[in-house]
């Protein structure tokens, strides 16, 4: 079969489409589409009444920033300031590597895992320790048709990995704790 200049015929004519879909073509003219062209001077500056925004003060010490920025931005989030070992890892990622370097992102992910581990451990010394049952939301399974919802799905084969990924570190942590305690108890008995 040779290919020809014509596009294969569409299953419906424009008239048929208009009859089936009442809103067909209301934005056919690109002029009606809000982001065409991509770069378009915004005369109202979206409500801004400044050209140089005020600078937000740094209340939590020097704020980490990408070294691709000239300086700290006028506005920034203050949600979770850096702290501890994870904070040191993240600060190094920001201070040493640009966003172009894989090391920047891998260090940030390492910081995430270090912080999560520390937070879990610290939670056991509080009145509200981490609870993998309530915090994973799996209790919702009971009312959410867990079997019917998964029947025949192509992703079912890797969903079985999720419990291993979530529970694995907890099981490993419990095993290490138990082995450690057993060793201590045996040493004391001797």
């Amino acid at each position: 079969m040779a290919y020809t200049p014509q596009k294969p015929p569409l299953p419906e004519t424009t008239e048929q489409l208009k009859a089936r879909i009442p809103f067909w073509g209301v934005d056919l003219d690109p002029a009606d589409r809000p982001s065409v062209p991509k770069l378009q001077w915004q005369e109202d500056l979206s409500g801004a009444h400044w050209e140089v925004p005020d600078q937000q003060p740094e209340r939590h010490g020097p704020r980490e920033r990408s070294i691709e920025h000239a300086s700290i931005t006028p506005v920034f989030g203050t949600a979770q300031p850096l702290h501890g070992v994870s904070g040191a890892i993240r600060r190094h990622a920001y201070a040493r590597f640009s966003e172009a370097r894989l090391a920047h992102w891998l260090l940030l992910i390492a910081g995430d895992r270090v912080e999560a581990t520390g937070a879990h451990l610290r939670s056991f010394a509080t009145l509200r320790p981490d609870n993998p049952v309530t915090e994973t939301g799996v209790l919702a399974e009971a009312g959410a048709h867990p079997v019917a919802s998964r029947r025949g799905r192509v992703d079912a084969r890797h969903q079985t990995i999720d419990p291993v990924l979530v529970a694995g570190p907890w099981v490993a942590g419990a095993a290490v704790t138990w082995l450690g305690l057993r060793r201590v108890v045996r040493a004391v008995r001797r």
């Binding site: 770069l39 001077w41 979206s46 409500g47 920001y94």
Partner: peptide, 27 residues
């Protein structure tokens, strides 16, 4: 999107690419 309205990008309608609100990344 958090955006300032007046950086080079916002002034041209790229509000999702504002350069004045994210110190952690330029991308």
């Amino acid at each position: 999107n958090i955006f300032c309205g007046t950086c080079w990008f916002c002034a041209r309608g790229l509000y999702s690419n504002c350069h004045n609100v994210n110190p952690n990344a330029t991308a």
